[in-house]
Simulated scan of single mutants.
Amino acid sequence: MTAPTTPTPAPAQTDDTSDAPTGRAPGGALHGPVIAWFDEHARDLPWRRPEAGPWGVMVSEFMLQQTPVNRVLPVYEQWLIRWPRPADLAKEPPGEAVRAWGRLGYPRRALRLHGAAVAITERHGGDVPTEHAQLLALPGIGEYTAAAVASFAYGQRHPVLDTNVRRVLARAVTGTQYPPNATTAAERRLARELLPEDERTASRWAAASMELGALICTAKNESCHRCPISAQCAWQLAGKPEHDGPPRRGQTYAGTDRQVRGRLLAVLREAVTPVPQSILDRVWDEPVQRARALDALVSDGLVEPLPGGLYRLPLT
């Protein structure tokens, strides 16, 4: 979820600024130290390299949502070996995208990425579009992903708000330990207000602030002594007050429908022919939960039911 080191030039794009800045102090004091730190400490990740191109950046953005870098790396590399261009993926059935997604989790992302590849091929001649509005119009692309691809692949000026950036801004600027559970309009206004005017600097700031949140300003065990902006950090200056907002949401997995869905998909990914219901019944002992999970997979388009009680990954 960070930028290639040499973005591909593209026409300038800016987000709607109908929510005007609120008069908060500009972020100039933050930009220089954070970008300088990034230049020295940024991880060498394949989607940051110039050869990744816009498609490589887009693939990484889909995969990195709610998934750690170390889990993404092997799947990302194999994905681009198999499908180096959107058109290569678009030619395959969507079930092949689900199969290749492996155990990254949240497999609907694979279907959405496949849908985006089809749309890119049909509407844009196989090239990831450069304009933010065109990116946002692709299936499966939300505001965050459109802004991230426009910024990281094309060097454009957009606020890119992921969990890491939101945490950095919450601490450094607003003085709170954590941002709200869901992104707020106030956070979006702040991100726009802090965005450097220069396009290249704005793109670097987006990547650098994200990396700072991933490596230094982490959710737990933050490394304030290594932070390039600790002297300006509002949370640090306030004595690092404890979070007093709504409880932080934890993610459980064991025993949930998500776990059952994952086990069902694992069987279907390994199969080369349709799988009978009797095989899927062995995946989970509790029949009601198992049936509910399978129905959800069918409803989400991740599994295709066939006559005779057979199931497979989707072909269309």
Rank of each mutant, 00 (worst) to 15 (best):
V160E: 10
P246S: 00
V72R: 06
F62Y: 14
D285V: 07
W205D: 02
R48A: 07
A133Y: 01
W55I: 09
R103S: 15
F152D: 08
F38R: 01
T183C: 07
G105E: 09
L111E: 01
A172T: 15
V168T: 00
G301S: 06
N181A: 10
E286G: 04
G102L: 06
E96H: 12
A36Y: 00
G56D: 10
S60D: 06
E122I: 00
R167Q: 08
A293F: 03
S299I: 02
Y106E: 09
A147G: 14
A87W: 01
R167N: 02
V160Y: 12
T130L: 03
L30P: 12
H114P: 07
T176G: 00
H243D: 14
L302V: 13
P26M: 14
L315E: 07
D39G: 14
A10M: 08
R99K: 11
G28L: 05
N221F: 01
E40G: 00
L104N: 10
E122S: 10
A119M: 02
P21H: 13
T174H: 02
A271D: 09
A186C: 00
T163R: 11
A219E: 15
P11Y: 11
T174C: 05
P74G: 11
A202W: 13
T145I: 12
S223P: 06
E211H: 04
T256D: 10
P305S: 05
E122W: 02
A90C: 05
H124W: 06
P21Y: 13
P4C: 06
R103T: 15
R312V: 05
L89N: 07
A110G: 06
T252F: 07
L215E: 14
L30C: 10
E270L: 07
L135V: 11
C233G: 12
K240F: 00
A12R: 14
T176V: 15
R157Q: 13
R82N: 06
Q13K: 09
A150I: 13
Q289D: 09
R189F: 05
A291R: 13
A10K: 10
R290N: 07
Q251M: 10
S223R: 15
L80N: 08
P314N: 08
V173C: 04
W37P: 08
E131L: 09
F38N: 02
L64E: 03
E143I: 13
T67C: 07
T121P: 03
P228T: 03
A182D: 15
A266Y: 05
S18L: 05
H114F: 05
Y76I: 12
R261M: 12
V272L: 00
A186Q: 12
C227R: 02
S151L: 01
A97Q: 10
G245F: 10
W47D: 11
T6K: 08
Q78P: 04
G308E: 04
M1E: 04
P241A: 03
S299W: 01
G142W: 11
T201H: 08
L135W: 01
G250M: 05
G309D: 04
L45G: 08
T145G: 03
V260I: 15
G255L: 11
P159I: 15
R192Q: 14
E193L: 08
L310V: 03
T145L: 12
R171V: 00
P11W: 04
R24S: 13
G213R: 02
I120F: 00
P274F: 01
W83I: 13
A296R: 14
A133H: 09
A150V: 11
